[in-house]
Design a protein around this nucleic acid. Sequence first.
DNA 1: GCGACAG
DNA 2: ATCTTGTCGC
Length: 243
Amino acid sequence: MIIDNNLIENLKKEQLRLANKLNLVKIDKTIRDFKLIVGIDLTFIKENSKEKGIVCFSILKNNINNIKIEYKILKKEIKFPYIPGLLAFREYPLIEKLFYILNEEYKTELENKEVLFFIDGHGISHPRTLGIASHFGVKLNQVSIGIAKRKLFGYYNENNLKTLKITELYNNEQKEKHLGYVINTDLITNRKILGSKVLFISPGNNIDCESSLKLFIQMIKNYNLVITELAHNYLVKIKNEQI
DNA sequence: GCGACAG
DNA sequence: ATCTTGTCGC
Ligand SMILES: [Mg+2]
């Protein structure tokens, strides 16, 4: 696929248009109040000299005294390249397809926003406050949070991260806009998460920074897992199996 | 012009 | 993200 500057500019405008619809609000619910927690990640393969993406939803079903995890995957050709800041245009179309399959099974829960989505990538911690987690949350009007392993955009205090194991991420040195948090995984667990010692947590949509952090930590404390990591590991597994 | 730059 | 051998640490 050939990407000219004109297309890039139009896609950036599309991001600004979607960013106007962001709804960054406090959520008083705890992690246990959500019927489902869904982790989203993708992997890529070459098949018949075509690049294909495989998306995985890891779905934690939180019934009373009964926690179950199931997986859904979908494979499709991907034509759009990876461009920093435009990740959603590569990965979101496939995510959306699997979302509509999920919607057949959990229509009510999704309509009532009783599903919490964690997406591998940034939320509002993005040059136009529209990382893939926000793109997803705005287009589908769902509650979403971004979990990224590396910084894309913003400023934070390295010393605070080192000493406090957590620090806030802002759009600039003047701290005009709070975009999320940078966490050293030592804060919550003694292991790396998704192969990383540092994670960037930011709101996708229908949630604010503080609630995003709260629910992320509650997920780890209550269920002893990071849901996007389950999706990631599942993809690694099926990739190794099919040869 | 140069560095930064999710997955 | 993917490719990919040896190598370091528990
Ligand atoms: Mg990923």
